[in-house]
Amino acid sequence: MGRKSDARQRILDAGATLFGQRAYSTIGVAEICAEADVPKGSFYYFFPSKQALALAVVDEHWVWQRGQWMGILTAPEPIVDRLRALFIATAEMQSAALKGTGAVAGCLFGNLALEVSAQDDPLRARLQEIFDEQIDIVEGAIREAVTAGEVSVASPRETARSIVAQIEGMILFAKLFNDPAQLDQLWQNSMKLLGLGDAAVAA
């Protein structure tokens, strides 16, 4: 039985594991408690519902991912190097999941968004906020690059939106085909969005 002091984190970790492996709708509180090795009473002490846990799992994952993205995209490097580092980190995460579990995990946010977009307003709203924040971070890096004369784009916001959409889409392909190599196309496509073309890709 999990100690009281770490029960909440055990439940969060169990939720993150299960939500990353299977459809959200197929996972029940009893299974989460079994994975966390805590009684149902402990679950409901910390979380009034599975939805509340999912929101907490999403927030915890975003704290980690936001730190990673900010560390990479605010580095004092040219935009092409920052984006390359972001794509490498993304691919490495999927490769690690494949090596550890035999399956590409995909994106927790994208996986949940596909399932709950038509039925779970609080979770959908939170995921929308997170995707908007991702776009904000990429947009900030692009605007810095425009100011520095590295790139010239008509709309940094829309370019950032397209890059984030590409990341999500290629991760979905990587999960579908169980192949992290699907992410290789991210680099070439994003350089084209930034108007840098084949020269930057080959650099």
Rank of each mutant, 00 (worst) to 15 (best):
A14I: 05
A16K: 10
A16S: 12
G20R: 01
Y24L: 08
S25D: 15
V29L: 00
A30I: 12
E31N: 00
I32H: 01
C33N: 04
A36F: 07
D37H: 11
P39K: 01
P39L: 01
P39D: 10
S42M: 11
F43E: 02
F43R: 03
F43Y: 01
F46E: 07
F46W: 12
F46R: 02
F47M: 05
P48M: 05
S49H: 02
K50E: 10
K50I: 10
V58Q: 02
V58W: 01
D59K: 04
D59T: 08
D59W: 03
H61E: 15
H61P: 01
R66P: 10
R66S: 15
Q68W: 08
W69M: 15
M70A: 14
M70Q: 15
G71I: 03
I72S: 04
A75N: 01
P78N: 03
D81N: 12
R82F: 10
L83M: 15
A85Q: 14
I88S: 04
A89Q: 10
E92S: 05
E92L: 11
M93Q: 13
Q94C: 06
A96S: 13
G100E: 13
A103F: 13
A105W: 06
N111K: 11
L114N: 12
L114S: 11
A118T: 12
D121S: 11
D121G: 07
L123W: 05
A125F: 09
A125G: 08
F131G: 11
D132K: 08
E133A: 13
Q134D: 09
I135N: 10
I135A: 13
G140M: 06
E144F: 07
A145Q: 06
G149T: 07
E150V: 07
S152Y: 09
P156M: 08
